[in-house]
């Protein structure tokens, strides 16, 4: 009874904090999104082309699978701390650490997306006289789009959800409030935590909708078709992120 009452009050206080510090929280949220966006952009610019080209050549699957394992095995706190010792406190260090984190799912899914395009489709494209680049642009990339978009979405959600930790290395964002109970009190810590949660869930829902919108209608049907027929006896570890995301 008492503890339930305490809980309720704690959360009411947190909501009160949110109500009276609205602009501060918006500022911090924007800061967090800016950091996450920069990290995601950096990862996409560098890693996406590598994954797509390797997938097109059907080469380097070890690298693509290794990236997904490494991406999970490297704790973000370790990445941020390690980059901090080299680059010093601030935006660049956090951006690079989060970009490394984002690279895993992007590399894996861009590779898998392109490499998994069916052999017969590739043969047909070649038979109709397409060159490697044309085939990549007009056949492989469109077919790879669902997996590719899923990879980017997983990376984006991961980075947005992880960005608060960057506060410990001067990353700003809602994490600034969460790790600073001395200044903001527990009301602030809890309020900022709730905001960080809302931000992540919102980003997840938004990106999911966006992903559905950019998938060509024909492929949407194909994805449903594939679901029942996909050989599923072995779930390769590299594809698990995509598996989860495809089926929710």
């Amino acid at each position: 009874m008492t503890s339930a009452a305490v809980n309720l009050h704690t959360f009411l206080d947190a909501f009160r904090f949110i109500g009276s510090n609205w602009s501060l929280l918006l500022d911090k949220a924007a800061q967090q999104l800016e950091l996450a966006g920069a990290a995601l952009g950096l990862a996409m610019v560098i890693v996406l082309p590598i994954g797509v080209v390797l997938g097109h050549l059907r080469r380097g699957s070890t690298l693509a699978i290794g990236a997904s394992i490494a991406g999970r095995a490297l704790p973000v706190l370790v990445l941020i701390a390690a980059f901090l010792t080299v680059l010093g406190i601030g935006f660049v260090n956090n951006m690079i650490a989060l970009a490394v984190l984002a690279s895993g799912p992007i590399l894996t899914n861009s590779y898998e997306g392109v490499a998994r395009v069916e052999e017969s489709v590739v043969d047909a494209a070649r038979a109709s006289g397409m060159t490697g680049a044309g085939m990549l642009r007009r056949v492989e990339l469109p077919l790879a789009l669902p997996l590719l978009a899923a990879g980017v979405r997983v990376a984006a959600v991961t980075v947005i959800a992880t960005a608060p930790i960057a506060a410990i290395a001067g990353g700003g964002g809602l994490g600034d409030i969460i790790v600073n109970q001395a200044s903001y009190g527990f009301d602030g810590v809890l309020g900022a935590s709730l905001c960080a949660m809302a931000l992540s869930v919102l980003a997840f829902a938004l990106l999911k909708t966006l992903e559905r919108a950019i998938t060509p209608p024909g492929l949407r049907r194909l994805a449903v078709f594939e679901k029942g027929n996909r050989p599923r006896e072995l779930v390769p570890i590299a594809a698990i992120g995509a598996e989860i995301e495809e089926e929710t």
Binding site: I160, A161, I178, F186, L190, S200, A203
Partner: peptide, 20 residues
Amino acid sequence: GFSALLYTIPSLALFQILVP
């Protein structure tokens, strides 16, 4: 769907939300 939603919650935030 529910577990995917749980997974999107930032760990740093979830720890604090559970503290009460």
